[in-house]
Amino acid sequence: MKKKVLLWIGGIIGVVLIGAGAYAYNVYNKVSKTLEGVHQPLEREASPKRTEQPSIKQAAPISILLMGSDPRGDERGRSDSLILITLNPTLKSMKMVSIPRDTYTEIVGKGIKDKINHAYAFGGVEMSVNTVENFLDVPIDHYIEVNMEGFKDIVNAVGGVDVNNDLAFTQDNHTFAKGPIHLNGDEALAYSRMRKQDPRGDFGRQMRQRQVIQAVIKKGANVSSLANYGSILTAIQKNVKTSLTQEQMFEIQQNYREVRNSNEEIQIEGKGQMMNNIWYYVVPEQSRQELSKKLREHLALPVQ
């Protein structure tokens, strides 16, 4: 009798383990297909700002350009937000530099000076990466492009996000109270787009964008989100492109997880200026060089 009971219990455990294994395989299989679908490498093999490509497998310091694109109909649109992230696993730290979209700089490959977000309209991801790289004089090893209009699908897929709002305002028919608030997809998009009512202008908007992005990452990394992994993967596949391969993403998750222990958010110093009746954000050369030095040191590169 005892033997039959043990066999019965063992059978139940076996069924559960097989089911769990099948579920895990199904999740892994769908994740792999999604990551393969969003992979879109840069045309260049490596950054001209490096002598050799850094190894993610060996946990070398790396940089990633996060771009929020704003397509309009059949047009490519502009990069609505630009955030350069540098990761140094040895120092267990990361730096996030929000680049004002009106920053006046050379558009690499176009031969003109213009607003930095126009690089995307002129030449897509390639021109944006080359332009930001030239402006900051640091290598950009990888990029992640997110369709901002579709970003709301990702927020909804993780069940919404929680942020701490420091300014009460209304945007796109959504009212946001001051203090801790929960945002669904549409609300998160409106929240991250507002800048005209903020006395900090574009810097306030950049701060809210970072809040939402960090909240999505935190929520998506939570084990409870696995229950809705199908919706999350669908939203990612529709709205994200990146030069990172599946293997590199897993290696970053494994080798760079402690960089979140120290996160510095950097604001680029400059001032607004009218030129030919167009408003630009002009960054003094000294400020640009000081920022470049700081980022190069964090990437363990020679300071020029």
Rank of each mutant, 00 (worst) to 15 (best):
V155T: 04
H174Q: 14
E187A: 15
V161Y: 04
I140H: 06
S192R: 10
Y191M: 00
D162H: 09
G159E: 09
F151S: 13
F151R: 07
Y191A: 00
K196V: 06
N165K: 03
G201N: 04
R195I: 07
D141P: 04
N147H: 06
G201Y: 01
Q171Y: 11
G159T: 12
R195H: 11
S192P: 10
D172W: 10
V138I: 14
N184E: 09
Q171E: 12
G159K: 12
L183T: 04
N173C: 08
F203V: 15
A188Q: 02
H182I: 04
K196A: 14
R210I: 09
T175G: 11
G160L: 06
L183R: 01
V216A: 03
M194A: 04
Q171G: 05
G159F: 10
A168V: 07
D166V: 03
N165C: 07
A177N: 11
G204R: 02
P139R: 10
A168I: 05
V132P: 05
H142K: 15
L189H: 04
N134G: 10
V155A: 13
E133S: 15
N165R: 06
A190W: 02
N156A: 09
Y143G: 05
S192W: 05
G160F: 03
I140S: 11
K196C: 05
A190G: 03
V146L: 15
R193L: 09
D186Q: 14
D166R: 10
Q211E: 14
L189M: 03
E187P: 04
R210T: 01
A215N: 11
A188W: 00
T170R: 11
H182G: 06
E145W: 10
Q211V: 03
D186V: 13
V216W: 00
H182Q: 10
Y191S: 03
N156I: 13
N134E: 09
I144G: 14
K219L: 00
G204L: 07
A215M: 10
E187K: 12
Y191V: 05
Y191L: 02
A215G: 12
D162I: 15
T175C: 11
M148L: 12
M194I: 10
N134L: 08
L183N: 02
A190P: 00
V158L: 09
M207G: 09
T131E: 01
M148T: 12
G201D: 02
Y191E: 02
D141N: 15
Q206A: 03
D137F: 01
G160D: 10
D162T: 14
T131R: 00
P180D: 14
G179L: 06
E187F: 14
R195A: 04
G150D: 09
V158I: 15
F176C: 02
E149W: 04
G159C: 12
L136G: 13
R200G: 02
V158K: 02
Q171F: 05
D198E: 08
I154P: 03
N156P: 08
R200H: 12
D186N: 15
V216S: 00
A177S: 11
Q211Y: 00
A215H: 06
G185T: 09
A168P: 03
K196P: 02
T170S: 15
N173Q: 13
A177M: 00
F135R: 02
Q209H: 00
M194D: 07
R208I: 01
K196L: 02
T170D: 10
Y143W: 13
Q171D: 08
